[in-house]
Amino acid sequence: MPDGAAEIPAPAGRRVKRSDQIAEELCRRIARERMEPGQRLPNEQTLMQHYGCSKGTIREALKALEVQGLVTMRPGPNGGAEIRPISVEAAAMQVRRYLHFHRLDFAQVYAVRRNLEVALGVEVVGRLDAAALRGLEENIRACEAAFAAGEHARGRSLELSFHDLLCDASDNALLAFTCRFINSLLRDLVEFRGGSASEYAAFGAHNLDSHRRLVAAFRAEDAEAAGRVMREHMCCAEAYMRRLDAAFRRDLLSGR
């Protein structure tokens, strides 16, 4: 298509820039050809000939892919667009932007989390090697130290990191990504809602006990026990977070 047709009608009735069309086609090409990190797209001249457009249009399309985190532009005569793996953070940012415009509370988060974390706990049984198990135990000790020092927010963040470590061991990319994303949301929600020291202490003690029992189940490679402990853990966490959310809303209404 010649570059003169910079915009064409889209199915939804809006006009799509030619560069955006090319960027989308390149995304499909990367997926179709199963291109791996480190591989490169064709050079600018080849892309210009293939799409029948100007250098500026191609550069704009490649820039869009770079902004998405899908490619890195390498300078020099042998440079070009190099495929790069999209980080969890980059992928999660798009979902965060979507959720920014929606009302979100603990009840909604746990309606999803309680089942996914149980599935994750069962799925990683037998996948945690000695180093991974040590990492979980080190996390528990770091949580204990944080709570002992009265650093409740840091302790809560570390507790969520325990679940991130389980994501690292998962062989299910979608499950791991979703659980990790929910953990990041919870960090934000807890930061904004706070909570009393006594509530944190009681909840922290429960979490530490649950995490120790989970590690024991993982060491024994007991999937049934891991699922049971995680289910109890999520039920307690949901109840605590719902109370915290209710208290937060009362404070807002009372002007405190």
Results as ranks from 00 to 15, higher is better:
Glu66Leu: 00
Val67Glu: 04
Gly69Trp: 01
Gly69Tyr: 06
Gly69Ile: 02
Gly69Gln: 04
Gly69Pro: 05
Leu70Pro: 04
Leu70Ala: 08
Leu70Thr: 10
Leu70Val: 14
Leu70Phe: 05
Leu70Trp: 05
Val71Ala: 03
Thr72Ser: 12
Thr72Val: 14
Met73Ser: 12
Arg74Cys: 08
Arg74Glu: 14
Arg74Trp: 11
Pro75Asn: 01
Pro75Ile: 11
Pro75Asp: 06
Gly76Val: 11
Gly76Thr: 11
Gly76Trp: 00
Pro77Glu: 08
Pro77Lys: 08
Asn78Ala: 15
Asn78Leu: 13
Asn78His: 15
Gly79His: 04
Gly79Cys: 10
Gly80Asn: 01
Gly80His: 07
Ala81Asp: 02
Ala81Leu: 02
Ala81Tyr: 01
Glu82Thr: 03
Glu82Asp: 00
Ile83Gln: 02
Arg84Ile: 13
Arg84Cys: 09
Ile86Pro: 05
Ile86Phe: 00
Ile86Ala: 00
Ile86Asn: 06
Ser87Met: 04
Ser87Ala: 12
Ser87Arg: 01
Val88Tyr: 06
Val88Phe: 11
Val88Ala: 13
Val88Lys: 04
Val88Ile: 09
Ala90Arg: 10
Ala90Lys: 13
Ala90Glu: 15
Ala90Val: 14
Ala90Ser: 14
Ala91Asp: 08
Ala91Lys: 10
Ala91Asn: 11
Ala92Leu: 12
Met93Ala: 15
Gln94Val: 15
Gln94Phe: 15
Gln94Lys: 07
Val95Tyr: 10
Arg96Lys: 13
Arg96Asp: 11
Arg96His: 14
Arg96Glu: 07
Arg96Pro: 10
Arg97Ile: 04
Arg97Asp: 05
Arg97Tyr: 10
Arg97Cys: 15
Tyr98Cys: 10
Tyr98Phe: 15
Leu99Val: 06
Leu99Met: 10
His100Asn: 11
His100Trp: 12
Phe101Pro: 02
Phe101His: 11
Phe101Tyr: 06
Phe101Ser: 12
His102Ser: 12
Arg103Asp: 11
Leu104Gly: 07
Leu104Ile: 06
Asp105Cys: 02
Asp105Glu: 08
Asp105Val: 02
Asp105Phe: 05
Phe106Ile: 01
Phe106Asn: 07
Phe106Pro: 01
Ala107Asn: 08
Ala107Glu: 14
Gln108Glu: 13
Gln108Met: 15
Gln108Val: 10
Val109Ile: 15
Val109Ser: 07
Val109Arg: 00
Tyr110Arg: 00
Tyr110Ile: 06
Ala111Thr: 05
Val112Ile: 14
Val112Ala: 13
Arg113Met: 10
Arg113Gly: 02
Arg113Lys: 12
Asn115Trp: 06
Asn115Ala: 09
Asn115His: 14
Asn115Leu: 02
Leu116Asn: 04
Leu116Gly: 05
Val118Met: 09
Val118His: 05
Val118Ser: 01
Ala119Tyr: 01
